[in-house]
Amino acid sequence: MGAVVISIDAALGWGFHVDPPADRPTDRIARSRWGWTQLAETLETYDIPATWAVVGHLFEEECAGAHVGHPSPPGWFAHERGDDPMDEQYRYAPALLDDLVGSELDHDIGTLTYSHVEFDDATEALAHAECDRAIEAAETAGVDVDSFVFPRNQVGHREVLAEAGVRCYRGTRPEPATDSPYSAPLRKLARATVVREPPPLVEPEVDEYGLVNVPASLSLFGVEGPAQRLLAATVGDPAVRQAKLGVDAAASGEGLCHLCLCPSDLTTEADLSRFRAVCAHIDSVRAETDLTVETMRSVADHVATPDTAA
């Protein structure tokens, strides 16, 4: 499968709701709806469907804040009813989701749990509640959930996903073995700028629970900071360079380049330019090769019925 997948972790304020108000990245939260709309418009421009993994609570228009019966830790929903609540526009997003559902693109709308719970540290009861409530909220909005992304990529309780009827999930990026003394972020930056290696192409496979694991290849905003900004200003954006290498590698062989990001990653026009450059490259390569653009759901279809794979 020579293909590209883009998956989007659509959480808005839920990605940061357990942080104390003083520690929340207010700039990222404040720009998250702008980032969401810019991602959607760019995908429309280049005719690229994506997997949108949405926090289930965003499907709702309002709630009492009690969440009766939800086995969450004490204070988990306190940001909804405390002294300094997070603004409602970052806790609900039915209009944004209506636009996705009504899009002519065949977006795959999956889930990022109901309230952005990290599954590696969740009880089984909490994992069940997060899956079931997210799926119920989506189905109420007319969305069938096939795809799942683990908040902050913390994989766990895959058996719960299978029991809930989920078909596929985004697994963790394969990391090559290394004896380098440098930190993982520096190694990633070096691969993008010095070594010039593409991100790993991945091979989706069915796991022991019958779920299709669609591992990530590259987070488009996984390496940020002064070094990245300096390189972007001098030799070009290393994230764009890596993504283009991955797309080209997928087009040249049988592999999947799985790119991922969040709406809250886009806070500036430069961030948007990065995403536009990647989408433009996907579109141009697709026009000249056999590269296909898939979603996690369509990848799961191909893995389940290999004779129909591209």
Rank of each mutant, 00 (worst) to 15 (best):
A3Y: 00
W14N: 00
F16H: 10
P25E: 03
D27R: 13
G35P: 04
W36M: 11
T37W: 13
Q38R: 15
L39K: 08
D47F: 10
A50V: 06
W52G: 02
V54G: 06
V55E: 03
E60W: 12
G65M: 02
H67P: 06
P74Q: 10
G75I: 09
R81P: 04
Q89V: 11
A95D: 15
D98M: 10
G102T: 08
D106I: 06
L112G: 04
Y114R: 05
D120A: 13
A122N: 00
A125N: 12
A127K: 03
H128R: 15
A137C: 05
A138M: 06
D146P: 01
F148D: 02
R158V: 00
P176C: 04
D179L: 13
S183C: 11
A184H: 13
L186W: 13
L189F: 01
E197D: 14
V206L: 13
Y209F: 13
R229N: 14
A232F: 02
V235M: 09
V235P: 00
A251S: 07
L259D: 03
D265E: 11
D265N: 09
T267D: 09
D271C: 07
F275S: 01
A277N: 07
H281Y: 03
I282A: 03
V285K: 07
E294Q: 15
V299L: 07
D301V: 07
H302K: 14
